[in-house]
Amino acid sequence: AVSDRLIGRKGVVMEAISPQNSALVKVDGETWRATSGTVLDVGEEVSVKAIEGVKLVVEKLE
């Protein structure tokens, strides 16, 4: 799938994300809905860990 190429890519949080709420991230110039197990604020850099349906699963870039 096209989205599989995004695993391992870096992105930027466009809307705050919490474990209860998905929000938008920008990866390679494209906007995607994403979820995370932690709270992520706007502007934080993230890494794509997986794809669940049409959502990216991201975590904060260390």
Rank of each mutant, 00 (worst) to 15 (best):
K60P: 10
G11H: 01
R5M: 08
I7Y: 00
L24D: 04
S36W: 03
L40M: 07
V54R: 12
L40C: 05
S18I: 07
L24C: 08
E15M: 07
G11F: 00
E45H: 12
A34P: 08
E15L: 07
V12Q: 05
R9P: 02
E59I: 09
R33T: 14
D41Q: 14
V25M: 00
L40F: 05
A1K: 12
A34K: 02
R5Q: 08
K26R: 11
K55Y: 15
M14R: 02
L40E: 02
E62L: 12
V57C: 05
M14W: 03
V46H: 01
G8E: 03
V54I: 12
I17H: 13
K60A: 07
A16C: 12
T31W: 14
A34Q: 04
G53S: 04
R5C: 11
V58L: 02
Q20K: 10
I17R: 13
V25D: 03
Q20W: 09
G11Q: 01
G11K: 00
V39F: 14
E45S: 09
V2Q: 09
K26L: 14
V48D: 01
I17D: 13
T35S: 08
G29L: 05
K10F: 08
R5P: 05
I17M: 14
G37C: 14
K60E: 03
M14K: 04
L40P: 02
T35A: 07
A1E: 10
S3D: 08
G29W: 02
T38G: 10
I51E: 01
A16M: 12
G43P: 01
A1G: 12
V58N: 02
E52S: 10
R33V: 15
E44F: 06
R5N: 08
E30V: 08
V54T: 14
A1Y: 11
P19I: 09
G11D: 02
E59K: 04
P19M: 10
V39K: 12
T38H: 11
A50T: 06
V54S: 14
G43I: 01
K60V: 07
D28L: 07
V54C: 15
V57R: 06
S36F: 04
K10Y: 07
R33E: 15
S22W: 08
K60G: 05
S22H: 12
K60W: 04
E45K: 09
V58W: 00
V57Q: 05
E59L: 00
E44A: 10
P19H: 12
L56A: 03
G43R: 01
A50W: 06
A34M: 00
D28I: 02
I17W: 15
V13G: 01
A50H: 06
V2F: 10
W32C: 10
T31Y: 15
V42N: 02
T35P: 02
V13K: 01
E62K: 12
D4I: 11
G8Q: 02
L6V: 06
S47A: 10
T31C: 15
A34C: 10
K55P: 00
R33S: 14
